[in-house]
Amino acid sequence: MRGFLAGFGLELRIVRAAPDALMPLLTAPLFALVFLAIVRQSGRADLEADALLAPVLMTLWWVALQHAGHLITGDRWQALLEPVIATPTSLATILLGRIAALMGLGLLSFGEVLIVGKLVFGVGVPFEHPVEMALTLLATAFATAGTAIAFAAVFVMTRNAYTFTNSLSFPLYLLGGVFVPVAFLPGWIQPVSSGVFMSWSADLLRATVKRDGIGDFWSRLAMIVALGAASFLLGRLILFHVLARMRAKGELATV
């Protein structure tokens, strides 16, 4: 727990000193405006809430991919990975703390889109099922964090990971159905998409702002958590092997 908190505090302090990680908090309101403009111009008031929720999910994805995914690589380049490994605290625990801080910051985008929607278009998110909504957001943040650990473990072994992750954002928004439900994607992609926790998150989140009851809420929530936990375990496994390999080859530090 101490390692988790240390990581959490570290990341908050780093972000405070260098707010690059907050980039999606600048773009989230802009994306909200773009999406709202599209549905408003088409006269589809029923989709306005969806237009506001999409940027929140995009923000979480972005943070996982562009920031959390590079935490290990960044430490390695700064010659921090070796001293971290040499402490009695496990790297995965510290990482989880750091990523949790990032996810917490990412969730601030929810407040932003609420404000922008109200100020510019006079639109809000109808809180039809507030408890379910909060749970869905939390489960989504958890699952995103789990996925981010897997990203971080893979990226540290990948050359040019930065170029690569820049290109992954929109493909993942698409597969995750953050705005347009996966049902609108071509049939052959849909099986892939249903393995992506974000598609479950997006569908469930959209259901929580509709007046109708939410079908199978708990099992759908469990699916998000399960997919997130699977990513987390997979991430830990990859991390374990990657670190063992680097320790054997002497690659924990860059020259």
Binding site: R44, L47, S169, F170
Partner: peptide, 16 residues
């Protein structure tokens, strides 16, 4: 990414 970005927005049209 380019195709995904364009498809992402074009799909909004489909949803509409």
């Amino acid at each position: 990414r380019v195709i995904a970005q364009v498809a992402f927005f074009a799909l909004i049209g489909e949803r509409l």
